[in-house]
Design a protein around this nucleic acid. Structure first.
Lengths: 111, 111
DNA sequence: ATAATATATATAAACAGATTATATATGTAA
DNA sequence: TTACATATATAATCTGTTTATATATATTAT
């Protein structure tokens, strides 16, 4: 019963960066973390995360390195860059304003 | 200094329906109303509104009629349908949940 | 007068982020 | 040994938004 995928659109990079701000992580873990926090309402496809990674890496928002390949399926870790931190901070401030404006627009003045 | 157009994506129809819930309106007026409520942060192109109208009309969310064409530029008015009201109510409840979850995902547990 | 601007609608083509479908490979539990 | 969870990757497709363009009337400034 997940929500329209357009709802996440434009927030995917911000959410990934928020997670990477506290610790390095990898695609599979980030996907699970978003779905868990979404309480059954938010779904993210793995392909969305991996294509976002490519974009963010070429934009200089994240760096990447391979985890210890000797055990289990190999993990590719991502690390937030200085530019990524700045990008996140901008988007965070933006969200605080935008969420208020969107609520005004969606709920309206009668409520 | 408007925000990424992806932020609005998926909310456009909900916002239009919220406006039409209180009174019939037309494209130009709705566009101005959204931009004004957006306090300089939210921009919507007229083409976005008009293409949304087409979609919503074929989905049965709105009906249309021409305004009095004898004065000024002709206006095409839109009216919300019963299906449109139901659609809006669903999206409104959805937004109340989603905005909370998005805040969790974007701001994180440290704040 | 006439140029500029505001009001008003419409649509084809381009853009871009998300999904679908598919491929590959390892570890673990039944 | 079958099934499932873990783990990454990308080409093709989908879809809502933007860009660009066209058309037409009303008002304001020069």
């Amino acid at each position: 019963m997940a929500v329209s995928s357009d709802i996440l659109r434009g927030h995917t990079e911000t959410i990934i960066l928020r997670i990477l701000r506290s610790k390095d992580s990898y695609g599979y873990e980030i996907t699970k973390e978003i779905i868990e926090a979404g309480e059954g309402l938010i779904d993210v496809k793995d392909a969305t995360i991996y294509t976002a990674f490519r974009r963010m890496e070429s934009d200089g928002l994240i760096n990447t390195y391979w985890g210890d390949g000797t055990l289990g399926a190999r993990r590719k870790y991502y690390q937030i860059t200085e530019a990524g931190i700045r990008f996140y901070n901008d988007r965070l401030e933006e969200w605080k304003e935008i969420s208020r404006l969107l609520s005004n627009l969606i709920i309206g003045p009668t409520h």
